[in-house]
Amino acid sequence: MEKNRDKKGRWRNLYVGFRMSPEESKALNIRVKLSGLTKQDYIIKCLSGPSIEVTGNPRVYKALRDQMAQIYDELKRICDGDEMTEEQLFTLQLIAQTLQGLKGEQ
């Protein structure tokens, strides 16, 4: 029986599970979508280094487009007198950082 190995020849046979609140899970899923990585790769990279490098691809573009559409809807709502939530501000900041990284800005 041949073992499944990753691209670097490592045999990954251990599972790690943990609990999250619905808000934490949503924030993690947004970060994963905007990174263009799988959830496993994203979490491993977060644990391995100080920052995540995003490579532009169609999946990242679609995630950015979808998040920007949601933010646009929220901004229209805010113009009517409501306020942005902390979660929405966080997502907007994350999108801005991702777009700056894709453009090569600091």
Rank of each mutant, 00 (worst) to 15 (best):
T91R: 12
V60G: 00
A96Y: 08
G9T: 04
K26C: 12
G101T: 02
R31P: 01
R10E: 11
V16I: 15
R31H: 06
S48W: 01
Q70R: 14
I78A: 12
A27S: 12
L64N: 03
K7Q: 13
K3L: 07
R5A: 10
T85P: 05
Q67C: 14
L89S: 11
R77V: 02
Q40P: 00
V54K: 00
E24H: 05
S51G: 03
Q100K: 11
I52Y: 01
I52Q: 00
L94T: 14
P50R: 06
F18W: 03
L47Q: 04
S35H: 00
N13Q: 06
G9S: 04
A27P: 01
C46S: 06
T38K: 03
R12N: 15
V60R: 00
V54Q: 02
P22M: 04
T38Q: 00
G81Y: 04
K7H: 09
Q93Y: 14
E86I: 05
Q106F: 09
P22Q: 04
E87I: 10
F90W: 15
E86L: 10
K39S: 09
L102F: 05
L102Q: 06
Q100V: 03
L64R: 12
R31Q: 11
L34T: 04
D73L: 09
E24P: 02
L102C: 06
L99D: 07
N29Y: 09
G36E: 01
T55N: 13
K103G: 05
R12H: 10
T85V: 04
M1F: 09
I78V: 15
L92E: 10
D6E: 04
L34G: 05
G17P: 01
K62E: 13
V32D: 01
M1C: 08
G101M: 04
T55H: 09
G9H: 00
E2Q: 09
V16P: 02
K26I: 11
T98Y: 04
L94H: 13
L89E: 14
I43Y: 00
T91F: 11
K62I: 13
S21C: 06
G56R: 09
M68F: 10
K33N: 13
E53C: 05
E53P: 04
V60N: 01
Q40I: 06
I43G: 00
K3C: 01
E24Q: 15
S48N: 11
L14Y: 07
G17V: 06
A63C: 05
Q88W: 07
T55A: 14
A96H: 08
L47S: 07
K39Q: 13
M20T: 14
C46T: 03
Q97S: 14
D41R: 03
G56A: 12
N29I: 05
N4S: 08
E87Q: 14
G101Y: 03
Y42R: 02
K7F: 10
A96M: 11
F18L: 08
I95E: 09
L92Y: 10
K62T: 13
R12K: 11
S25D: 10
F90T: 09
E87F: 11
P50A: 13
E23S: 11
T55K: 15
E23N: 07
A69Y: 09
I43A: 03
